[in-house]
Nucleic acid binder design. Structure first.
Lengths: 134, 134
DNA sequence: CTAATTGTTTACTGATTTGGTATAGTTTAA
DNA sequence: TTAAACTATACCAAATCAGTAAACAATTAG
């Protein structure tokens, strides 16, 4: 029931970029040093944020990363999903959800967990990076 | 961000016991068959529910398991914590929380995740097994 | 054009967790 | 005392996690 280390680092990288003046390009090494993230690991994490449309990058001299939209438009859910995919608090809630009992449609546990998951997703969506920097 | 298979099985075992008439002792094999849980695995799971005070057991002939309190008094949080311990959605929220940046007290991410976690815990506490059997 | 700089991609690795099985032991009723 | 039931512990293969490494691609400076 937790986020993994890569997601934790991703939160910090996004927050660090959100704190820069708009459009400022920050190289990986700066983020890694300031946020105490292993450089190589950060370099593996960033492409996930790019694919999710949260961050953009520039290569070559003077290159680096910057947010692709305003911090207020980036939610905690966006970052979690960028790193870990859609949230499913139990296997039975996945798209072709597996259950050894095959009882999903009528399973009371399934329904309760679905409600709990929906609440969690809503809560994650309710936190954005704009609120964190003011 | 999910519960593990053992916890899923634990939910089913508790619900199955909750559906029995009060005080009925059910042997492991019956639970395993009805809920489609590998017997040996179930036998390893049950002691966690017993230690958490959710279930009681009787050994020997005619033995088995039964709930130690009313279904309404058993929450989803109780079962999750019985199986996985206290919920921490990120390492920094553990008792002696680790953070490579050591910035927990002033970290905005930490504070947001703490709020999200508190919401999740409250939601889990809000679902009980009494509601599921009526 | 070339070299230096910066991100991208993919593969690899050791440690830990997960999901489950096996074995030996304890308790209890008949 | 024997069979039925749970308990404790050890074991195991596969997957995931956290991180490292190396080769590659793009860009800019000179």
């Amino acid at each position: 029931m937790n986020i993994n280390q890569a997601t934790d680092y991703a939160f910090r990288a996004v927050l660090f970029l959100a704190k820069q003046r708009s459009g400022k390009v920050v190289e990986a090494q700066t983020i890694a040093e300031q946020e105490v993230i292993p450089m190589r690991f950060l370099l593996k994490i960033m492409p996930s944020l790019i694919k999710a449309g949260i961050v953009k990058s520039l290569r070559g001299v003077g290159g680096g990363y910057f947010l692709s939209k305003s911090p207020r438009e980036i939610t905690f859910l966006d970052v979690v999903e960028a790193m870990e995919g859609r949230i499913h608090i139990n296997r039975c809630l996945e798209d072709n959800g597996y259950c050894s009992k095959q009882g999903a449609p009528t399973c009371q546990i399934h329904r309760s967990l679905a409600a709990i998951q929906a609440n969690l997703v809503a809560e994650l969506k309710n936190h954005n990076f704009g609120d964190l920097i003011n």
